[in-house]
Structure formats: structure tokens, C-alpha cells
Design a protein around this nucleic acid. Structure first.
Lengths: 265, 265
DNA sequence: CACGATGTTCCGTTCAACGGTATATTTTGG
DNA sequence: CCAAAATATACCGTTGAACGGAACATCGTG
């Protein structure tokens, strides 16, 4: 009973506190929060008070705790996610305006794909990706693209993990995956049917900066069976090049060179 | 020389570290960072190492520190800013597609308006607002709307502060401001010419949830002299109502009521 | 108005956090 | 090629920020 008998750092505790707020619980009382993250009330009280001073947490009208706008601001200012999003949004809108129902933008984060942006025409096919949501690399078309362009060691690391089946059609056998990855590098896109939810298919292309280094992926989600690849794939590839250019790099079939004035990304 | 002789908390230091990354410096070396925030290298080293473990900071290929995607994720999950943005984006796109060159979405954060989203047609009039950027309340049309709908005490607090002139036309006299605010409440919008930069005018309307409580503002930026208010203002008001509805509240001329199934926002 | 639930304050204890110094590693430029 | 400057990492004795149990305050509810 002293300065953290658990040996836990303040930083870790703060992350736990901030992580407690999410879609299911955007607002929490002190006690509720303390129960959720299993820390003494007085400890949570002290940390929360400090976070309030910093503006990372605020209290709403009813006294419930919420994330403060300051947290969003802090994260948005320096983040690659935001610059990526801004660079990609116009092209993504164009795709929606030209017939695609669902497009999303993902980055690689650990063993998951983190979705940075998602646009949908109102009619909406089934699509479980959410902004700031995650899917395991082997379980989504975007993830397979990241695997395909990853360094060999990283790729092997992904393949050696225990891979969970999200549906009947999720590919989990390392050998079959290896074949798929080789094909992705050859063709420059992937189309997977029903690997997340049975009703939908995902088509993804990489977004490059340096040659063959995928910083992000652009994906279209279409109803299963309605994949007109000869139309969609070129659209996605062109959009991907446009995004590369907006990020301050020069896209090209063979070479990707830095421009004289590269963006901060 | 012990546990923070300065009496500074770890939390505050962490915020200082994370704040150091921004548009000007998206990537920093350890020493560079330590100099920037004026803390001993060894201290920064320790804190940064811990932030790396949490994924809030990462090192890029050259060993420079950057914000990790995890930070963005953490902030986006629970944040009102993100839900607001998602609710507003479709309406904002509609405005752009129907002729407006610049629209932005702002929230009140302390004494500033924090811009959550900004869309621009490619031709672009002069507009200094940036996503995750700030402007003082008295110095932008959005801020004046927030002041107008703030509680009396808060309004007086704003008015009693020393107000800086951003241009010749920035209104800083409390009396003139009071008159403007009353007018905003009466008409439901404001149009200010050249108060930020001389060449542009801002037109803003509130976005309500509870009655007369502005959670955000929707603004159009147009070249000075090109304010066709009789066209733009109705467009903005309709868009604002649409956003209110998407947030799960019922907009109305007189009454604003909660729906049976309000959104998490 | 007693009762459960939650939020706030108090205070003695102690280890996580601190930062100066020493050592590795990389970069520079002569 | 090799000093020298700059940066990153590791070490370690010191100590006050952080800790959490307990007491107190406040609120809603039957």
C-alpha cells in the first residue's frame, strides 16, 4: 500500500483510464470507472482530477466523465492517421460518388488493421468495419495486403501466429496464405470473399510512399457475388496513386520517388 | 533532485511530451525533444520508453520519435469530436457539392474554437482554419455563435477578457460585441467580414442538441463581398438540422426534444 | 430519515520517478 | 582514418509524488 504496490506505472494507468471510454461507454462515473479498470477509487479520483486539469477528461452536465476535446486535438495534431485521412478523403469521396457503396482506409497497427476512415453510400451493404475499429491482419483483405508487402521476417511472424477463423471462409492455413500473398504482390490487389462476414467481399489495394512500402490500404466492400473486379480494381488503384501524390510522393508503375517538397507525412 | 523537484506530475509531463509533436515537428529525436520541452534527457528517455511500450509513441525507420496510431485510436474511440465529425461529414459534403467553397465544423474548447473538420472545394478562397487548429472565440464567426448561446456568466467571462485584434475589422469592444451576440440569438446566424483575414468572410450557424445549447458550429467561408446570405444561411441552417438529427436529437424551430433512442453522443 | 451509492478529502507510507553521471553508438569534418 | 561532438542508452543513490485505506460529505430513493 504505497506508491503502486502493483509495480504499475502512472503512464500505464492513464492509458487504462482513457481506454475505458469507448463506444459502449462514452461517459462514466468515478466509481463506475474505478470498477471497470479495477483500481481504488481514491487513486482513480486523483488521476482523473489531474487529467481534468490537462483537459484530457471533462465532466458533462450530469457530472459524468468524458474524453475532452483536448485529447482529440493532441492526437490529431501530430498523427500520421490524420494526415493520411486528409490526403485520402477526396479520393474516397470520388469513389463513393462513382458507384462504390463502401470504401475504407486502413493502417497496420500491431497484428491488426486499424481503420482510419470509412465512407458509405446511404444504402449500405453489410460492413462491420468502424472508424478507429480493428480487424486481425489475416481476417480482412486490407490486412492481407499489408502482409504481402511486409518484410519477410514480419510476414513469417504473422504466419506463425495462431490464426482465428472469423467465418467459414477465413483462410488460416499458412501455405494457402503464402500463395495468396505472392499473388497480391504480383497483381497489386486482393479480393477476398466472405472472410469477415459471409455476405460481403473486400477488395483492397496498397497505398505506397517509398517503393513497395504500404503505409495504408484502400478497400472497397461490396455484396458478395457483385465483385466487378475489372471495374473496381482500376478505380482503387488510380485513387491509391492520387493519395500517394497528395502525401507528397511520386507514384509510378516502376519507381516511386520523393518530390522536392515532401509533405510532413 | 528526486521525484520531480519541480513538483510537476508525470501526467503533465506526458502531455508536454505528446504536445511537442505537431505540424512543424511530426518527428523528433530524443535530445531534440528534451531540449524542446526543457526536461533532462534521462527523464525524457524513461518516459518516452514507457510511451513506446503503450504504443502512444513509435520510432520510424530513422529512429525518430512519432505519435503512434494507438494514440489516435484511443482519442478517436471515446471522443465527441469523432462522433460529431461523422455525423456532420455527409451534410458538409452536400454543402460543398452545392457550391460552397469552404465549410468547417467547430467546437468550443476553453477560450478558443477548435476546428474538428474542414472541407474545401479545390479552388479555395483564403481560409486559415486547419483541422485541429484553434481560433479565439471573439476572432471568428463560429466563436461569436458560441458566445451568443453561452450562459450569461460564461458570456460575461468571455467579454471581460482582453481581446486581441486579428485584423482591422476584428470587433473587440464589449458593447459592440454584446449587440452582435443579441442579434445572433435573434436571427440564428452570424456573418462577419474580414475579422480573421481581410479577404474572407465567415458565416456561422449553431448546431443544437438540447434547446439553445450549441454543441458545435457549422461555418462557411466565402470571399469577402460574395456573401449571398439569402442563399447560404438557409443552406447552413438546414444542414445544421440534419446534423442535429444524425446526432440522435430532434431539431425544430421552437422545441428540441430528445428522441426515444438517443445516440451515444 | 435511514440506507445504499457515489464523490471528495485526509494522511501516513513507500517505491516509482527522478536526474546527474558514465558508457555506448552514431555522425561529423579535418 | 581518427579525434571530437552529438546523441542514445544504462546505472544508481535519493526522495517526494503517488499510493490507497479510511473517514467524511453529498445525493437520490424507497
Amino acid at each position: 500500500m504505497a506508491n503502486s504496490p502493483s509495480g504499475e506505472s502512472v503512464i500505464h494507468r492513464v492509458v487504462r483510464i482513457l481506454s475505458a471510454f469507448g463506444e459502449q461507454s462514452p461517459a462514466l462515473g468515478l466509481r463506475e470507472l474505478s470498477r471497470l479498470i479495477d483500481l481504488p477509487v481514491s487513486t482513480v479520483y486523483r488521476l482523473v482530477s489531474e487529467l481534468e486539469i490537462e483537459g484530457l477528461l471533462v465532466r458533462d452536465a450530469s457530472g459524468q466523465l468524458r474524453h475532452g476535446h483536448r485529447l482529440w486535438e493532441l492526437a490529431s495534431r501530430g498523427s500520421r492517421a490524420s494526415s493520411l485521412r486528409e490526403a485520402a478523403l477526396p479520393s474516397m469521396e470520388d469513389l463513393i460518388n462513382h458507384g462504390l457503396n463502401h470504401v475504407s482506409l486502413g493502417v497496420l497497427e500491431g497484428n491488426d488493421v486499424l481503420y482510419i476512415e470509412r465512407l458509405a453510400a446511404d444504402d449500405a451493404t453489410v460492413n462491420i468495419t468502424k472508424i478507429a475499429g480493428r480487424l486481425p491482419v489475416h481476417g480482412c483483405s486490407a490486412g492481407l495486403v499489408f502482409m504481402a508487402y511486409a518484410q519477410d521476417a514480419v510476414q513469417e511472424m504473422f504466419l506463425s501466429r495462431r490464426l482465428e477463423k472469423l467465418t467459414e471462409d477465413t483462410v488460416t492455413e499458412p501455405e494457402r496464405l503464402r500463395a495468396i500473398l505472392a499473388e497480391i504482390r504480383g497483381r497489386g490487389y486482393v479480393s477476398m470473399q466472405g472472410i469477415i462476414v459471409p455476405e460481403s467481399s473486400g477488395i483492397s489495394v496498397p497505398i505506397f510512399t517509398e517503393k513497395n512500402h504500404a503505409v495504408a490500404t484502400l478497400s472497397a466492400i461490396v455484396p458478395r457475388g457483385a465483385e466487378s473486379l475489372n471495374l473496381i480494381v482500376p478505380h482503387l488503384k488510380i485513387a491509391s496513386s492520387a493519395i500517394t501524390r497528395r502525401l507528397g510522393y511520386e507514384p509510378s508503375g516502376r519507381e516511386i520517388q520523393r518530390r522536392s517538397t515532401p509533405a510532413t507525412f
